[in-house]
Simulated scan of single mutants.
Amino acid sequence: MEIRNLGSSGLKISAIAYGNWLTHGSQVEEEAALACVRRALDEGITTFDTADVYANTRAESVLGRALKGERREGLEIFTKVFWPTGPGRHNDHGLSRKHILESINGSLHRLGTDHIDLYQAHRYDDETPLEETMEAFADVVRQGKALYIGVSEWRPEQIREAHRLARELRIPLVSNQPQYNLLWRVIEPEVVPTCAELGIGQVVFSPIAQGVLTGKYLPGEQPPEGSRATDDKGGATMIGRWMRDDVLERVQRLRPIADDAGLTMAQLAVAWVLQNPNVSAAIIGASRPDQVSDNARAAGVRLDADVLKAIDEVVDPVVERDPSKTQTVRRAQLMKG
């Protein structure tokens, strides 16, 4: 397993991180989830990413049980705060001081640890002063409950201001967690240059576009039974943007490129993400242990310039590059009652 620094910080993480966004506590049974974590550890993955909102806190609990008994110093555990948890009332979401300080305690309890390696703001909060948010994160760090701070899906101007405040507060803001893959490159024009300048690394999610870049979805055909595109617990909604025949046809044209490189389709997609020098890690998810092993073998792969050019020529007509697609979530939209 390739090991990289997270941004310009001294924290070292596995280039492949294991995430449980749509799986633990939701899409797969706990026994299968535990098997996937065990396989991740066997493959040398040391970095595990989750969030309190995943399966409404259940994903954190499953991950905590899966990692129980492992040497804590040998792991990097990431989680996040922002989205509604519990009953979703007015203080059950956002980045207020109240929600952050209460949420970190809940996450620590569920994960069975006394500290989080990277605590991330899952989205930007338009209803809370950024100063309040960053001061709360500073307290979390000074209390020893989190070692580093990160953000997720923030716009470049938001990242820059948070970084300025973090420097004033003397806390380490080291990462951004955006969606990034062959088909979705909205971070490249603005977010990546900003983060590279500030020493902030990308820990990217959806490197295989929710499974579309594995090539298992064929144009003009129904999705395979049991695949993410048929999951009514959230998976089908998330993958929907890619389930167009023009996209699926282009993806199929990547197969000979992967074959010539001696890679599976999934490995090609993950390896492509890791070629970006601002990417510190790619988060993979899995419902079966063999998927973990397949994706993990993309670590350390170097794609030649001609391979990268061939990939771009195939997918260019269906690539999304518009930086405005990184959008702030309005907290008023999250209220449930």
Rank of each mutant, 00 (worst) to 15 (best):
F78M: 14
V37P: 04
R72S: 08
A59M: 05
D114Y: 06
A59I: 09
D117Y: 09
L95P: 14
G112D: 07
W83A: 10
K98W: 12
D49W: 08
R89K: 14
G88D: 10
G106H: 05
R89G: 15
L111R: 12
F82A: 07
R58Q: 14
E43M: 11
F48T: 02
E76V: 15
K68R: 15
K68Q: 13
S103K: 03
G112M: 07
G74S: 11
D52S: 12
S103E: 12
L118C: 14
D117W: 08
L95V: 12
T79I: 03
L41V: 14
V81E: 02
S61L: 10
T79C: 07
L101V: 11
S107F: 06
V81P: 03
A66N: 06
Y119S: 07
E102G: 15
G112Y: 10
G94W: 06
T79F: 04
V53W: 02
D52T: 10
I116Q: 01
T57R: 11
I100C: 05
V37E: 00
D42I: 01
S107K: 10
L95E: 13
P87C: 00
V37N: 01
L63H: 05
H90R: 14
K98P: 02
E76Q: 14
S61W: 02
S96P: 10
F48M: 03
D117T: 14
Y54S: 05
V81S: 12
L67H: 04
V81H: 03
I116N: 00
S103D: 10
I45N: 01
E102I: 00
I100A: 05
I45Q: 00
N91V: 10
G88F: 09
D117P: 07
T57K: 04
E76W: 02
A51V: 11
G94H: 07
N56K: 09
F48S: 05
Y54D: 04
R58L: 06
G86H: 08
Y54E: 05
T85V: 15
N56I: 03
R58I: 04
D117Q: 04
T113I: 07
A40D: 08
L118E: 08
E43G: 00
V37D: 01
E102C: 01
A59D: 08
E73F: 04
A55M: 06
T57L: 04
N105L: 07
E43L: 00
E102T: 11
G88P: 12
T79N: 07
E73N: 13
G86N: 06
S61P: 01
G88W: 10
K98I: 14
H93C: 03
D117I: 11
N91P: 01
V53S: 10
H99S: 06
C36I: 06
G44F: 04
D42W: 01
G44K: 04
Y54V: 08
R110K: 15
G88S: 09
A66T: 11
R58G: 00
G44D: 05
E76I: 15
E70T: 14
P87H: 00
H115C: 05
D42A: 12
